[in-house]
Amino acid sequence: VNELYVDDPDKDSGGKIEVNLNISLPNLHCELVGLDIQDEMGRHEVGHIDNSMKIPLNNGDGCRFEGHFSINKVPGNFHVSTHSATAQPQNPDMTHIIHKLSFGDKLQVQNIHGAFNALEGADKLTSNPLASHDYILKIVPTVYEDMSGKQRYSYQYTVANKEYVAYSHTGRIIPAIWFRYDLSPITVKYTERRQPLYRFITSICAIIGGTFTVAGILDSCIFTASEAWKKIQLGKMQ
């Protein structure tokens, strides 16, 4: 059963959304890679390091960044950049692959195929190395309620993106990978329900009825063929 309604389903979250980000930058050293978070509530954090990990790639020439962090339920952004580096590189290369970007609990439920990890596999390795990337996200609250009434909260999202070369006030190019998000007021709810008994009985009756119908058609065909064969045999005898 699917429903749409206007509400904040996860009121016990403290106004926070958990984020999971996994991204590879094969041409940027790990000491240069950082995560910055800011939003309309005044949060402005440069070089977020809690629950994050940097894994060197390509003999240290590249980096895989994995982070688990929370954002407020207000419009804002988080971005991967070199802003927190001690010294800014001359030509930072922001080509990348996004392995995962998800929000809230992970839902592993059969027959629910939503856009919970819409950016999985996004490949920008052939882009302009100095280009900034804007991913514009519309986050949609999603609730799954199982047959026992237990609810799990996750978020789907839609995405649009663009690339551009951005210059600082000094004329330098300082690219970044931006994830700009806003929340949808509409919540999607999936409710697991047992099939009603009457629907099961109706299905059984339909199967039985169909079986009898097919059997009747086959019997009619066999009878017609048998009569035709008898007529042919009588014709030969005459």
Results as ranks from 00 to 15, higher is better:
M41G: 01
V74L: 10
Q88L: 14
I37F: 06
G114P: 01
T95F: 03
G60C: 09
S132A: 11
V74I: 15
A85E: 10
S70A: 14
V80F: 04
R152V: 11
E66P: 00
P9K: 06
A87H: 09
D134Q: 14
A131V: 04
A85M: 08
E120M: 06
Q108H: 11
P196R: 07
V33G: 04
A206F: 09
H113W: 06
I217G: 04
Y5K: 13
A206C: 04
F223K: 14
A228G: 09
D7K: 08
Y164F: 13
R152T: 12
I217K: 07
T170H: 05
V214W: 12
A206Y: 05
S132E: 03
D36N: 15
E18D: 15
V109N: 09
A176W: 00
N59Q: 12
E3I: 00
G114L: 05
Y198E: 15
Y181Q: 10
I173P: 02
L32Y: 15
R193E: 15
S102E: 07
G60E: 06
G67D: 11
F69T: 09
F116S: 07
H44F: 14
D105C: 04
V188S: 05
I232M: 04
T142E: 13
N117L: 02
I208H: 02
P129M: 02
I177W: 06
L137T: 09
V33Q: 04
T170G: 08
A176T: 04
E145C: 02
K162R: 12
R152L: 09
L183W: 01
G235W: 03
K150Y: 09
I23N: 07
T126F: 05
D105N: 15
P92W: 05
E145Q: 14
R172E: 14
L101A: 02
C30I: 11
S148G: 00
G42I: 03
I112G: 06
C30M: 08
D182R: 14
A176G: 10
V165G: 03
T158S: 15
N77K: 14
P56T: 03
F212D: 00
L21F: 09
G114H: 02
S102M: 08
E145L: 02
A225T: 01
N91L: 02
I98A: 03
W178A: 03
G216C: 08
I49S: 09
F223W: 12
F65N: 02
D219S: 15
L25A: 02
K106M: 01
K100Q: 14
Q90Y: 02
F179D: 04
E163R: 03
I177V: 15
H83G: 00
G209Q: 06
